[in-house]
């Protein structure tokens, strides 16, 4: 079907060559499917991860061809996931960590028709610099009130053009792009990764960080609770244990009606409070 090319395009040849070398330089190869990624997302990531992650954007066929010549266990499984335009990331960090870091580096992007707004999309009041024309109708449809002043369209007050989660129409997307308002938060998610012969799928690469945060809090809290309960004193809990022991002594003194300097008043209040609580439950009797 394909015409045999007499000469491989130079760019493709370079990429082929790159893929021959990179896998031996790094422990991890991670794959991102470009169908959900725009090339404009890659630039900030390249900067951010410079020295840690090499990012290569490549067509599936070239990548498959190059990778298939390598003797890396498991690479064929990764190559099988290559579809269309792809991004390959080479790194020595754990692919799960890479995935978490990618999730932390989401960027705001211009919406395209059909995208869902990631935030409440606010159009700020002020001069748009746009000359009046049919666009005024677009503003009106988006619920944005405008006025014309000295030949340009002014927005009279901050307006929400779309709520978080709303689907953005093609028309609104065009309007937002003219105003340079970004409505979509875009993150890159790893599709699969190869590390030390093991291939990880998207699910295995996804870690619920909040769950870990909560687990740390809970684990520490359990340690604290246990140490206080058993009176095992450490620097972290010594104040709490002292407070608890003193508290127990106060509670005991009060419950026993044994007056101490620290608890006299509380004991009287307690006795009186009991009388009040009891009288409050009495029907047809009001103490004088």
């Amino acid at each position: 079907m394909h015409q045999n090319r007499t000469k491989y395009p130079q760019k493709k040849a370079q990429m082929y060559q790159q893929l021959q070398e990179l896998p031996s330089k790094y422990k991890v190869i991670a794959l991102v499917r470009m169908e959900k990624v725009r090339s404009s997302q890659l630039l900030p990531l390249r900067k951010k991860f410079k020295g840690e992650v090499e990012i290569v954007s490549i067509k599936d066929k070239v990548a498959q061809k190059s990778l298939s010549t390598l003797k890396i266990p498991g690479i064929e499984k990764l190559a099988a996931n290559l579809v269309g335009q792809c991004v390959l990331m080479f790194t020595n960090m754990s692919p799960i960590k890479l995935n978490i870091l990618l999730g932390k580096n989401k960027i705001m992007m211009a919406a395209r028709g059909g995208d869902k707004a990631s935030i409440d999309v606010v159009i700020k009041a002020g001069n748009t610099g746009i000359t009046p024309g049919p666009i005024l109708t677009d503003f009106k449809e988006a619920g944005v009130s405008t006025k014309i002043d000295q030949g340009t369209v002014w927005i009279t007050k901050d307006s929400i053009a779309a709520k978080k989660g709303d689907t953005i129409s093609g028309k609104l997307a065009t309007l937002l792009s003219k105003l340079d308002v970004k409505a979509v938060e875009a993150g890159i998610v790893l599709n699969s990764a190869l590390e030390d012969k093991v291939i990880y799928n998207q699910e295995e690469l996804t870690v619920d960080v909040e769950q870990y945060r909560a687990a740390f809090a809970k684990a520490h809290q359990e340690a604290l609770s246990l140490s206080i309960a058993i009176g095992y004193v450490t620097k972290e809990n010594v104040n709490m244990i002292l407070a608890k022991a003193a508290q127990q002594a106060r509670s005991l003194a009060i419950e026993a009606g044994f007056l101490t300097d620290d608890t006299k008043d509380a004991t009287i209040q307690r006795a009186h409070g009991q009388a009040k609580s009891l009288s409050g439950k009495l029907k047809g009797y009001s103490p004088q």
Partner: peptide, 17 residues
């Protein structure tokens, strides 16, 4: 004063300032 008191319960009572 402690004769009739269940100490285990008493020390669990709500904190007193």
């Amino acid at each position: 004063a402690l004769a009739d008191v269940n100490i285990e319960e008493a020390i669990k009572a709500a904190p007193v300032a």
